[in-house]
């Protein structure tokens, strides 16, 4: 019961700790990497924990569009 959920949780914890560790590195591209890792976590929570993977394609496209637009705007402005 919940094997996929458990794997997702471990994946999320690894990404969270990785994000905190790489933020210490001073490099121009670290900011982009931090945002990409945040986007991965966001996708994992919405598709696995919130079961969006079972939803109609419309909802999947909507959440991914929001995420892509958000990350793109932050990268462009930053």
């Amino acid at each position: 019961m919940g094997k996929t959920i458990t794997i997702t949780w471990v994946f999320l914890l690894v990404l969270t700790i990785t994000t905190a560790l790489i933020s210490e590195i001073k490099d121009t591209y670290i900011s982009v990497l931090i945002l990409i890792l945040a986007a991965l976590k966001f996708t994992a929570v919405s598709f696995q924990f919130m079961e969006l993977k079972k939803a109609h394609l419309f909802w999947k496209i909507l959440i991914l569009s929001y995420l892509l637009l958000f990350i793109a705007l932050i990268i462009i402005i930053f």
């Binding site: 458990t6 997702t8 924990f49």
Partner: peptide
């Protein structure tokens, strides 16, 4: 995230 894991 752990709270969300138990919720799921």
């Amino acid at each position: 995230l752990t709270s969300g894991f138990f919720m799921a």
